[in-house]
Design a binder for these strands. Structure first.
Lengths: 333, 333
DNA sequence: TTGAAAGCGCTAACAT
DNA sequence: ATGTTAGCGCTTTCAA
């Protein structure tokens, strides 16, 4: 025989009050006489009653759950953001439905729809680019959405990032000031606005400010992976570059190790600045100088922004830029 | 004016059928005349109807959602497991509610209860140890539970692991055969069964087989972190150890880098075998030899096991051991 | 093959 | 301060 689940009705009957009163007690409504509250709480304890969140969600139209779309949890960059998101979510009594998208446009849209079907109160999206398909879904959804560590030039939804133009400009300038005339720019897919409109812009701005002509052969577009970096270093060296700004840490480790393995001295013969300041930067030798994006904070602030949107609070600016810095280590002079 | 949400009732009215029929169409019930099905699908498409999963969950008592308790998403070990879990979950049409526990006993119990309140169909738990409190909750819950990459000697719930005793024994034996008489054993909290009852057991078995007496001063208990490893190497070296079996990759990287920074040649003067074969092992120099735990697969198999339990299928053995191997790299001779 | 109707467990007016 | 009563949007017998 199945053990019967205890409902609010059972508690009401045993405590000799109405369901409404039990509901009030459970939800901390002050309009309950202390004596009644005590009696109800005793019964709840005795019967070991646990409110059913699904029923509550249906009745109240709130699930206290937010959807999080992430390219890959096992990618340290996004996992760091996710950690910040979950901590703030917990703080505000929300839970997280986590869904991997693999940056696949079709999967993203599908995942978004199942998340909406599950009636999430809000949505956080992470990804290197916003496809037109997903942007269209964002537009027609009335569920609040925030992008974390992800750029959409449209600025239709909330977002939390750093100023990528300025960060890359600073990084490039540092390399130029160290005496490098040929600084390579190694990034991901240039179809992504974050790379073409922001990072590359910063790189060009730096050259411009230093009076160095832009040379397209110094731009290397590749995928974000350790092996891609390893494979790329030869070409970078062949073109005569003596330094590189790299958009991803794993990619940068690949470049760094390939250089070291090839007997190139870093930073004497070749300098590297990477972009995410994940713990990887401290685990490699030499340790890598990096732009420091406050990933955890970006997730946390993004989730905080989302709570405000879900609460329909006034938002002064839903496009948030967090401060960045450049952490000097041994891969630069 | 708020845009009215479309319900199954709207579809039924427009298609001139009953709600039951719409429900059948949506759920792929074959007992619907093709013509009717077509008519209903057209209306669904026209009205852009999306079933409300919360209402469905309340009515059917199934949420197609599973809870995942994880110590820390930003830890690559658990994130790798989580990725395997989510992929298989997606495959079987489940979503994942992800909750970080920080290995905090109190938080774990609380998180478990909110997950159960949300009526998850199943639960996957990850953690270095199973506290009595959480074990008690497991016992009284009738929701299926699986442990992934986590040991409970009780074997009350399902679990997926590798044979830690044998793996550590193999690793230790390799080091002994390479000529090391003093092999350090560097692990996490020895109060955790996985360390005391399994890994240390394997270590002792190896010594025993090789006829080397057990020396407690070679056992180093510490936390799992890069800095702990860095700090520890000096002591390990001072005691005269010439090799180490390490239970965690970040910890091992700390030991490795401290050794290299101290001018110790690896593997000539000191050998290391680590335990998780995460991508870190290939990013450091020298690359690290490691026990290879199939983390992704452990997550995937754990989730698959859970789907069977949720389906009330017959399970031949709910305690699963996956094969491991030792991947040779440059931190051993 | 289809429909009617009774819930699922809870919240939220509205009354009292 | 407390109770009554509709739903929330869907699934699932049971009948037809």
């Amino acid at each position: 025989m199945e053990k019967q689940t205890i409902t609010i009705y059972d508690v009401a009957r045993e405590a000799d009050v109405s369901m409404a009163t039990v509901s009030r007690v459970v939800n901390g409504n002050p309009n309950v006489k202390p004596a009644t509250r005590k009696k109800v709480l005793e019964v709840i304890d005795r019967l070991d009653y646990r409110p059913n969140a699904v029923a509550r969600g249906l009745a109240s139209k709130k699930t206290t759950t937010v959807g999080v779309i992430i390219p890959d949890v096992s990618d340290i960059y996004f996992a760091s953001l996710a950690r910040g998101i979950d901590d703030v979510a917990t703080m505000y009594k929300y839970n997280i439905i986590l869904a991997n998208s693999d940056e696949n446009n079709q999967k993203e849209v599908q995942v978004l729809n199942t998340l909406l079907a599950k009636q999430v109160d809000g949505l956080i999206y992470m990804g290197h680019s916003i496809s037109d398909a997903i942007r269209a879904e964002f537009a027609r959804s009335k569920t609040p959405i925030v992008l974390a560590g992800s750029i959409d030039p449209d600025e239709q939804v909330g977002s939390v990032n750093i100023d990528y133009v300025a960060a890359v400009k600073d990084a490039t300038l540092k390399l130029i000031k160290n005496g490098n005339e040929k600084v390579a720019f190694i990034c991901g897919n240039l179809e992504f606005p974050i790379n073409s409109k922001y990072r590359l812009r910063g790189y060009k701005d730096a050259l411009n400010e230093a009076g160095i002509p832009y040379d397209e052969s110094l731009i290397f577009e590749t995928e974000y992976s350790y092996s891609a970096g390893e494979a790329l270093f030869g070409k970078v060296q062949a073109i005569g570059a003596t330094a590189a700004v790299v958009s991803d840490d794993e990619l940068a480790v690949g470049v760094l190790n390939a250089a070291v393995d090839a007997g190139v001295n870093i930073p004497t013969d070749f300098e590297i600045v990477t972009s995410n300041n994940t713990k990887l930067t401290e685990m490699v030798r030499p340790k890598m100088t990096s732009i420091s994006q406050p990933l955890y904070d970006m997730g946390a602030v993004g989730m905080r922004l989302l709570t405000k949107m879900m609460n329909k609070e006034e938002i002064d600016d839903k496009t948030i830029l967090l401060p960045y810095s450049i952490v000097d280590r041994q891969s630069t002079k």
